[in-house]
Design a protein around this nucleic acid. Structure first.
Length: 493
RNA sequence: CGAGGUGUAGCGCAGUUGGUAGCGUACCACGUUCGGGACGUGGGGGCCGGAGGUUCGAGUCCUCUCACCUCGACCA
């Protein structure tokens, strides 16, 4: 096993980093905090983009593109927003370089200073709402339902591949509405889109919830989120949907004439998911042999590997695999026939396992003689030999469905066994410091003060207040004050 | 930004009291192999992170820098 990765149990971080590299997803670049997304990693992102984009279009949104640069003054117009993002902005101050008159290399030309500095967007609310002012005059212009696929930059102090990089790819939806009710409905709709996507495509169970004021997006009235559990029991925020109220409309003077010809401020939402989802995918499903991709998402669902010695065997096996491959393609399955003659079959097995391809089909001369083919599932590692007949592609299709369900089931099982109802602070701390940390459902008195104290003492934060939360009288696990419901605590990425 | 650590071949690492750089893997060629990351023989590849300094001589000692990693705090 020359190319094995470290075990999860020994070093979770190292396992994660090595997997990202060995599976061909991404690598560190020479630019601080920025990664190169390699072709296989990008293929996964493209699958995410396509599926989400279709869903956005189905729900009435259109795509547009706004500038990468935001004038510094725009950012300061919404007070909370600027406070949230100011300390992690990359700023463009000059527009020209020149050769160094005192030596080698280039220097920034001091004569080329910008009148107003430009911020590289950490998110696009400000530039978009500045534009919406010109687009919205009447209730007839509403709702305005726009999404943007873009890169953004947040100068994070500590970065991790996919989970937190200085530059990352995402989509950001920015919608404008005539009423608060309609904007809130949009916020919920998009949260549902994300939750569906996480569960049915990524096979990651999520909790839909609302953030506490302390964890809210800078400039939002309410932040909704989906929270997922990773295999180490930590939480990962996988998507957010914000109800922005009239905050940005007021900051950028975006008003519309209603049916009674009265001027009103517009109501707003914004929502996004990022390349962080790739990190979620890795940490939710993968094992010590590499990635495990859910079939619905996988860029390659089935890989076909020929086994042979002689030239004759090679031709015969590959010919048969080509026939099977075209049957699978006809059935709508994404396949790869790995006929690379420079790699041995054993090497290919390990490689495609590392890359998480859900099903591997292997055929050698013996299989060919018996009209059989070896089927190996990535999720369970089980091997089967099936006969090649009319039902072949149907069997594979069904197996893909089964694998999708099983991967989801496994992730859900983990979350269930690592979710705890807790009533004392002692137990609370013990669980987080024990061998199986996870989600803690505990009563909370509703104050930011208590929330911060708990964070300080345990490292856990309130991930969300679940939307379908049952009401239940109790007392705060920390302060002992009365509470009406449990909230979800966990350590988070 | 705090606390630790690491920078030597694409990747992972060794390099003794200072004497001019090596191992594994990957890569190239040939041969034998081929049903779970093959083996043998031969070969190519290094401004030892960067800049100063000490010294006849620095991967090694000193100073300053830069970058990255792990763990915190901040965040998607």
């Amino acid at each position: 096993m020359a190319n094995a990765i470290p075990k999860r149990s020994e070093n979770y971080s190292e396992w994660y980093n090595e997997l990202v590299y060995k599976a061909g997803l991404a690598e560190n670049s020479d630019v601080r905090g920025c990664m190169v997304i390699r072709p296989y990693g990008y293929a996964i992102w493209e699958r995410m983009q396509r599926i989400l984009d279709d869903k956005f279009k189905e729900t009435g949104h259109v795509n547009a593109y706004f500038p990468l640069f935001i004038p510094k003054s725009f950012l300061s117009k919404e007070a909370e927003h600027v406070e949230g993002f100011a300390k992690e902005c990359a700023v463009v101050t000059h527009y020209r370089l020149k050769t160094n008159p005192e030596g080698k290399g280039l220097i920034v030309d001091p004569d080329a200073k910008l009148e107003e500095e430009l911020v590289i967007r950490p998110t696009s609310e400000t530039i978009i709402w500045n534009t919406y002012r010109n687009w919205i005059q009447s209730y007839r212009d509403l709702p305005l339902l726009i999404n943007q696929w873009a890169n953004v930059v947040r100068w994070e102090l500590r970065t991790r591949m996919f989970l937190r990089t200085a530059e990352f790819l995402w989509q950001e939806g920015h919608t404008a509405h005539a009423s608060a009710e309609e904007a809130v409905a949009e916020t919920h709709q998009m949260l549902d889109v994300y939750a569906d996507f996480a569960q049915n495509v990524l096979a990651i169970p999520v909790i839909k919830g609302i953030k506490t004021p302390n964890e809210r997006f800078a400039g939002a009235n309410d932040t909704y989120c989906i929270e997922a559990m990773m295999q180490d029991g930590k939480a990962l925020q996988a998507g957010t949907s914000h109800f922005l109220g009239q905050n940005f409309a007021k900051a950028f003077e975006v008003k519309f004439a209603n049916k009674n010809n009265q001027l009103e401020y517009v109501w707003a939402t914004s929502w996004g998911v990022s390349t962080r989802l790739i990190g979620a995918l890795i940490m939710a499903h993968s094992d010590d042999d590499g990635l495990k991709l859910p079939p619905v998402l996988a860029p390659i669902q089935v890989v076909l590997v020929p086994i042979y010695k002689t030239e004759d065997e090679k031709n015969a096996v590959i010919n048969e695999l080509k026939i099977l491959n075209s049957q699978l393609i006809k059935a709508g399955i994404r396949t790869k026939l790995d006929d690379d003659d420079t790699k041995r079959s054993g090497w290919k097995f390990a490689e495609w396992e590392m890359k998480g391809v859900p099903i591997r089909l292997a055929m050698g001369p013996r299989d060919l003689a018996n009209a059989h083919i070896e089927v190996v599932r990535r999720d369970t590692k089980t091997k089967d030999s099936i006969s090649i007949n009319d039902q072949f592609s149907e069997i594979i299709q069904n197996l893909l469905v089964e694998i999708q369900e099983n991967i989801f089931h496994q992730a859900k099982l983990l979350r269930e066994t690592r979710s705890y109802k807790v009533d004392t602070f002692e137990t609370f701390k013990n669980i987080l410091e024990g061998d199986n940390p996870g989600f803690i459902y505990a009563h909370w008195d509703g104050t930011t003060e208590t929330e911060l104290k708990i964070k300080e003492e345990t490292g856990a934060t309130i991930r969300c207040i679940p939307l379908d939360n049952p009401k239940e009288d109790g007392v705060c696990v920390y302060s002992g004050k009365p509470s009406t419901q449990r909230v979800v605590f966990a350590k988070a990425y």
